[in-house]
Amino acid sequence: MNKRIGMYSSIVTLIGVVGFALSMFIGSDDGSYLFSLFISWGFVPMICSFSAVACKENNSAGYAAIAFSAMYAVVVGLVYFAQLTTIRLSELNEQVLAILDYKNLGSLFFNYDLFGYAFMAIATFFIALTIEVNNKKDKWLKLLLLAHGIFAVSCIAMPIMGVFSSNMKDGNIIGVLVLEIWCVYFTPICILSYQYFKK
């Protein structure tokens, strides 16, 4: 059952990543938010599955990964659900939108989103420590997960340093490009995770 859930959740995460990339490409904000929720709904059980199949001596790393993945899902879930409901369906004044609208670079919810992805990155780092390398695919999976953990530093540091702001020139284009690159990076993680559970 653990491996089966791992396989299915890897597929859900992959669908979320591909759907997110396509939504950004065609300029569908609502699609991007919805598929971002799918990523989190697949990611948490995928991390739990990695932890479940890991050897006992790696339990602490697995538990840490589960905790950070849950924190990621809660934070980004609140951000994207708010965008799909309150922001989309309500007539809010400019001051409220400046705080809650994800599309406003440097807004509270934009910064919360980056904070959530820092938790995701930390989760991938810890879960990489539980991966047992038996072949080249496992080695690549472990390396990609470990390297993904580095994103946590930028996700926390950039909002604190005020890198993003509403008057940033070409900020939206740069943001979309960075996220598309992230999708290209995370897609093989989903595929290799599926293969890791399938064997």
Rank of each mutant, 00 (worst) to 15 (best):
I150E: 02
V96T: 13
S36P: 14
C190A: 15
A61N: 12
L141P: 14
M120D: 06
S69W: 01
L37A: 01
K142D: 08
N167R: 09
I87Y: 13
I173P: 00
L105C: 08
M1R: 06
V96K: 08
W140F: 15
F186C: 07
L22C: 03
F164G: 11
Y80I: 02
S60R: 14
F38D: 02
F109H: 10
D30H: 11
S28N: 11
S28W: 07
A128L: 09
Y33L: 12
G42K: 00
K199W: 00
F151Q: 08
N134A: 02
Y33G: 05
C190S: 15
V12H: 03
A121Y: 07
I122P: 08
K139Y: 04
W41T: 02
N134G: 13
F81A: 11
L84W: 09
N111D: 15
D113H: 15
S69N: 06
L78D: 05
T124P: 00
T130P: 10
M1P: 06
S165T: 13
L145H: 07
V184D: 07
Y63L: 12
A67W: 05
L129N: 15
F35R: 04
M24D: 01
T187K: 07
P188W: 05
Y8F: 08
V79D: 10
F38P: 05
I39W: 09
Y63F: 05
S165V: 04
L144P: 12
V18G: 13
L129T: 02
M161H: 06
M158Q: 14
E91G: 14
Y196S: 04
Y194C: 01
D170V: 09
L143Q: 13
I26Q: 11
N93A: 12
N135D: 13
M71H: 02
N111S: 15
P159C: 14
F35L: 04
V184Y: 10
E57P: 08
T86N: 02
K3G: 00
G16I: 10
G16V: 09
T13I: 10
L89V: 01
F151K: 07
F164R: 12
I5K: 04
S10I: 01
I127T: 04
Y8Q: 03
S36H: 09
E57I: 03
I150F: 06
W182Q: 02
L100K: 13
G19F: 03
G149H: 05
E180G: 02
L177A: 06
L143S: 14
P159Q: 14
C48A: 08
S10K: 05
L145K: 04
G19L: 08
L129G: 05
S60M: 12
V96H: 04
V163E: 06
E94C: 04
L177G: 02
Y8A: 01
M168V: 11
Q83A: 06
I181P: 03
D113G: 10
L108K: 08
L114F: 14
Q95N: 13
K169L: 12
A123L: 01
I11M: 06
G27Y: 03
K169W: 10
L179V: 02
I66S: 05
M7H: 00
